[in-house]
Design a protein around this nucleic acid. Structure first.
Lengths: 110, 110
DNA sequence: AATTATCATCGTAATATTGCGATATAAGAA
DNA sequence: TTCTTATATCGCAATATTACGATGATAATT
């Protein structure tokens, strides 16, 4: 198979999973951290930064862009990427919500 | 390929990515939500709940257990799973940290 | 106009994930 | 003991992901 049975789950569950999937690679985490740190947008200094091939880096950027968490604008010959603040907030609040209530006082069998 | 080049990235980056990977499937999100809601530990009422085959459900539980976020204890013939509160907190704080500072006032090119 | 630099995309190889039926294992009931 | 119930694991098929070189496309430089 290899494909998730998305129809079995709620929209929210699928959304959270999709967001998590976008973050499920160290290179993509590294890209996001870099973009947050250098507030300024980056082209592909990232290629040098990451140590991955240009094609691979481009592919990871594409995934992040498709997830909506970053956006890119053409800047002459190069492309400038940066965090999409609104989507960033959505991610933030969704994960915050997800990890919120956990009642340790309830009975546990393990 | 299909395997990530983990050696290129920091331990933190690999950790966050690994955590995100554990959450990167709607069935696993559903399992965690169910375990949080029913504070009480569950065996495989989950199989009925999820609508996936028993083998598939077991596999997802295994992944969550390997990620450390849930733990299971044998309860006679059945197994009782529940959230691991400490690891849950680690996830919570790591994601919180990751999504923390974002300076929208900085100059942006997109 | 020709060359170079910066990306994106295509094609391909290696590996991982998802899903399920079938089978194994262990506990409890008949 | 034999049968049932509850899980885990094996083996397979379908698909997805990761990575890279090669090739395009476009903009800037010479």
């Amino acid at each position: 198979m290899g494909a998730s049975k998305t129809d079995l789950f709620t929209t929210e569950q699928n959304e959270i999973a999709a967001m998590a999937k976008a973050l499920a690679h160290p290179a993509r985490i590294a890209i996001l951290q870099y973009l947050v740190e250098k507030n300024v947008c980056i082209t592909s200094t990232l290629v040098e930064e990451l140590g991955l091939a240009q094609a691979t880096t481009s592919q990871h950027l594409k995934e992040l862009k498709q997830a909506g968490i970053i956006q890119g604008s053409v800047e002459g010959a190069s492309v400038c990427y940066c965090i999409n603040p609104e989507v960033w907030k959505v991610y933030k609040s969704l994960f915050n919500n997800f990890f919120k209530e956990i009642d340790t006082t309830g009975q546990q069998c393990c």
